[in-house]
Design a protein around this nucleic acid. Structure first.
Length: 111
DNA sequence: GGTTTGACCCGTT
DNA sequence: CAACGGGCCAAAC
């Protein structure tokens, strides 16, 4: 398995309950800045087997994945709401309150 | 093998 | 401010 993929899965698995992360963030933390598309492919490749909380990964606008990913939007939204993620009236995620700040800076010093 | 596509992002206009 | 376009990486044609 590709080294970048492992990093991506590592960070996705580490997103706390009630928080979400963006493709761009995960890409940066995984050592592939400006390569959100690689994260997209990692998600598609991961799908079922790894039990990752991929419903906590959204794009920068706070818009959920298309229907074909989880079957329906209600599905993904229900999961997130159950974890305490807040939504805006327009159906987007309230990123101001639910976006993960990311790992503490010291963590990167260890790396 | 080159070309196209995807659950995208950011600096520039 | 909104819109645009280039960039990035991996897989499927």
């Amino acid at each position: 398995m590709n080294r970048h993929y492992e990093q991506v899965y590592y960070w996705v698995a580490r997103i706390p309950r009630g928080k979400v992360a963006t493709y761009g963030q995960i890409a940066r933390w995984s050592g592939i800045p400006r390569s959100a598309r690689a994260v997209v492919w990692a998600m598609r490749a991961a799908s079922s087997a790894l039990r990752l909380p991929c419903h906590r990964v959204v794009n920068r606008a706070g818009v959920l994945a298309p229907d074909y990913v989880f079957g329906s939007k209600e599905q993904q939204r229900a999961l997130l709401e159950r974890e305490g993620v807040q939504f805006l009236p327009d159906g987007r995620i309230d990123l101001a309150h639910s976006l993960w700040d990311g790992p503490s800076p010291e963590f990167f010093d260890e790396l």
